[in-house]
Design a binder for these strands. Sequence first.
DNA 1: ATATTTATATCGTAACACGATACAAAAGAG
DNA 2: CTCTTTTGTATCGTGTTACGATATAAATAT
Lengths: 130, 130
Amino acid sequence: MNAHRLERLVEFRHTLRGFLFFSEEAAAEEGIHAQQYQLMQVVFAATEPTIAYVAERMYLKHNSAVELVGRAVEEGLLLRKRDLIDARRVVLKLTPRGERILMRLVDRHLLELERVGPQIKVALEKVMSK
Amino acid sequence: MNAHRLERLVEFRHTLRGFLFFSEEAAAEEGIHAQQYQLMQVVFAATEPTIAYVAERMYLKHNSAVELVGRAVEEGLLLRKRDLIDARRVVLKLTPRGERILMRLVDRHLLELERVGPQIKVALEKVMSK
DNA sequence: ATATTTATATCGTAACACGATACAAAAGAG
DNA sequence: CTCTTTTGTATCGTGTTACGATATAAATAT
């Protein structure tokens, strides 16, 4: 176990955590949670955003996805729609409010990545070199 | 709001989330939580690992750090030591068990980064290019 | 000697994630 | 066409994590 590599791994995780912390703060400023922002991203980018799709894409168990969606629906970010063809499935859709919040957050994250992206990249390159 | 950039941002977060999910799984296989692994990294890499230092480094409030450390101590991963010079402070140290687990996890993460590091890098480069 | 600041700790609350379990709709088996 | 199995979503109980508010003891400043 090379000590240099460990330190670089720690540094890499620190820069990542910094970015994720920014994300949490930005979401909070929009009055939502970081996971809700992630959920909205996934829903918006998908062609057929069902609970199962969200779970798979976010590496969650399906029941966790159900709960996450439930909270987002309660707060008016998302809508549940029963699939007419397959009545087991639920298709998700952003509300206008959810969409507005998502767009603002995406913009802010893109801006932040212009700042910290290079740092992340350097930290990653260092940790990958032996 | 460029649609391409949004999709690339979503893709970037997805690769990141994939790495973090691996981290959670790897920690679970060692019988600990992902945050405990992060905590051990920070403690191990620091010259003077106090509660306040851990909190700052992990972007946590001090009380969250206290609680995280408390659970890690209970599970025999970490030791609390009152600082002899400044009796307000608590200095942390890995137990032999904690250190063994940390080393195994670091190795596995370095290996995983050889695999997903390039993916993360590409996704990051794409999201940064306009 | 007293007031303020610093470092850690405790308590109540909420989001989040999970396993276990349930249930209705769809698909498959005979 | 019934019966069984699979699929998609939902509910419940539990634990981790994180927070704000509050507390306490030690160190520092006045």
